[in-house]
Computed example of a mutant assay.
Amino acid sequence: MKKQFILWCQSVLKRLLGLDEQHVIKKLKEKGLTVGDNFIMQQGCIIDGSHCFHITIGNDVCLAPNVHILAHDASTWWFLEHTRIMNTTIGNRVFIGTGSIIMPGVTLGNDVIIGAGSVVTKDVPDNCIYAGNPARFLSSTNEYITREKAKMNSENTFDEKFYIDRASSADLALIKKMAAKHGTAYLR
Rank of each mutant, 00 (worst) to 15 (best):
2 K>M: 00
5 F>K: 06
5 F>P: 00
6 I>A: 00
12 V>N: 01
14 K>R: 13
14 K>V: 01
15 R>Q: 12
16 L>G: 07
16 L>E: 02
17 L>R: 09
19 L>W: 11
21 E>R: 05
23 H>I: 08
29 K>R: 07
31 K>W: 00
44 G>E: 07
48 D>P: 01
50 S>P: 13
52 C>M: 08
53 F>W: 15
57 I>G: 05
58 G>K: 02
59 N>V: 13
62 C>D: 12
64 A>W: 10
66 N>F: 14
68 H>R: 12
68 H>S: 15
69 I>E: 13
72 H>A: 15
72 H>E: 06
81 E>Q: 14
82 H>V: 07
82 H>P: 00
84 R>Q: 09
86 M>Y: 07
87 N>F: 05
88 T>S: 08
97 G>S: 11
98 T>M: 12
99 G>S: 04
102 I>M: 12
105 G>S: 01
105 G>V: 02
105 G>D: 00
107 T>V: 09
118 S>H: 03
120 V>M: 00
121 T>D: 05
121 T>R: 12
124 V>T: 03
128 C>Q: 11
128 C>H: 08
131 A>W: 03
131 A>C: 12
131 A>V: 01
135 A>D: 05
137 F>K: 04
138 L>D: 04
138 L>G: 06
138 L>E: 06
138 L>I: 14
139 S>N: 15
140 S>I: 10
140 S>L: 06
144 Y>V: 12
145 I>C: 12
148 E>P: 09
149 K>N: 09
150 A>W: 02
152 M>K: 09
160 E>G: 10
160 E>T: 10
162 F>Q: 08
162 F>H: 09
163 Y>E: 06
165 D>T: 15
167 A>H: 08
168 S>W: 01
170 A>E: 15
171 D>G: 06
174 L>N: 11
176 K>I: 13
179 A>F: 10
181 K>R: 09
183 G>K: 01
183 G>C: 12
186 Y>A: 02
187 L>W: 08
